[in-house]
């Protein structure tokens, strides 16, 4: 029936992330800037109105020895209940509506197709005019200063794509396509996370987004499109053999090798990513080994089986091989 699991929590403090990398308040994209400005303005209004209303209640409850005029009270209902909110809200609504189209504006060329899986992200880059995508997983790379369009859908259940530092979020449906666009204007690494409850490991479905200068992005994309680098060193070579022996290629693709599986994340350049296991672990040899050794403990109900009967040496070799896939 249900898979019970215990996380070996000694590993979890290794989760990547530092203050502000997943924050709406610490922005690095034009859409996010707009939303943040909106937030501060609305917060100021909120504080003023809250203090005014509660102050009014406090005064009337405690400091109201003389009887007030009833006609005045009625005027207060009209003024405070209808006129004031109508004016304030009309202005706010008009502002809100006016910024909506920007956040879904067409992109400047690059289209990124992101597909939500249980619980990871399939990422396909479609540069303008491309006939086939550049396939990657669990990480987003974006050129700064340009608007990139996201084409979102999902495999089985609903997920939601969200990089707080860059902009708003958009749900990903099976059988439906949704669209959004982001316009980063600062280079950096920002964390995104699935925002729609998607089952047991919803909490463990994240990704890193790297924004970089357009020319760096172009270079990176070219490298990403290429085949995997061959293993370097004895241990890594042994790891490649283990990879083949254990049948990892049935689910995972490492382009340029026999491994062409499409079920799990593409691992062609997995060693160059900023995180492991869809944003939950630092990419180190130890963490690769830990992940392969007990996947279900690190990510409850994950589809990849745990290879906990693999000898320690093989495990390390496999991890070293994967870390080497830069």
């Amino acid at each position: 029936m249900r898979v019970r699991s215990r996380l070996p929590f000694a590993l979890l403090p290794g989760l990547p992330g530092c203050t502000g990398r997943q924050s709406v308040l610490d922005t690095a994209g034009t859409d996010a800037h707009t939303l943040l400005t909106m937030f501060w303005v609305m917060l100021a209004g909120l504080v003023v109105i809250w203090v005014a209303v509660n102050g009014m209640m406090l005064v009337f409850r405690h400091l109201s020895p003389r009887r007030h005029d009833e006609a005045l009270a009625r005027k207060m209902i009209v003024g405070g209940g209808i006129m004031l909110p109508t004016v304030v809200i009309s202005a706010l609504l008009a502002w809100g509506l006016s910024v909506m189209p920007d956040q879904r504006a067409p992109g400047d060329g690059l289209r990124v197709e992101v597909i939500g899986e249980q619980w990871w992200w399939r990422v396909h880059y479609w540069p303008e005019g491309a006939e086939a995508p550049v396939v990657s997983a669990n990480e987003g790379r974006l050129p700064g200063g340009l608007r990139t369009e996201f084409d979102l859908h999902s495999d089985k259940v609903i997920h939601s794509f969200w990089v707080p530092a860059l902009g708003g979020k958009m749900d990903m449906f099976p059988g439906r396509r949704t669209m959004m666009s982001l316009h980063p204007d600062e280079a950096g690494v920002f964390r995104g996370q699935c925002a729609e409850f998607c089952g047991a490991s919803h909490a463990l479905m994240a990704f890193e987004t790297v924004t970089m200068p357009p020319e760096d992005f172009a270079a990176w994309l070219e490298h990403e499109a290429g085949p995997a680098v061959p293993p370097e060193g004895e241990v890594a070579e042994r790891g490649a053999v283990v990879f083949a022996e254990q049948g990892c290629g049935a689910c995972h693709a490492v382009r340029g090798t026999a491994a062409q599986g499409q079920v799990g994340p593409d691992l062609t350049h997995v060693g160059s990513r900023h995180s492991l296991g869809a944003g939950i672990l630092e990419p180190t040899v130890e963490n690769f080994a830990a992940w392969i050794d007990h996947t279900g403990d690190l990510k409850p109900e994950v589809e990849m089986p745990a290879y906990d009967d693999l000898p320690g040496d093989d495990l390390t070799a496999l991890a070293t091989f994967l870390m080497g896939l830069k």
């Binding site: 209808i82 109508t86 809200i89 009309s90 609504l93 008009a94 509506l97 006016s98 909506m100 189209p101 879904r104 669209m179």
Partner: peptide
């Protein structure tokens, strides 16, 4: 009446099906 005016605002301000 206020509600009706509010509801027509998006039609006036957002000129696309996106």
């Amino acid at each position: 009446a206020i509600g009706v005016v509010f509801v027509i605002l998006p039609v006036l301000m957002i000129g696309t099906c996106r």
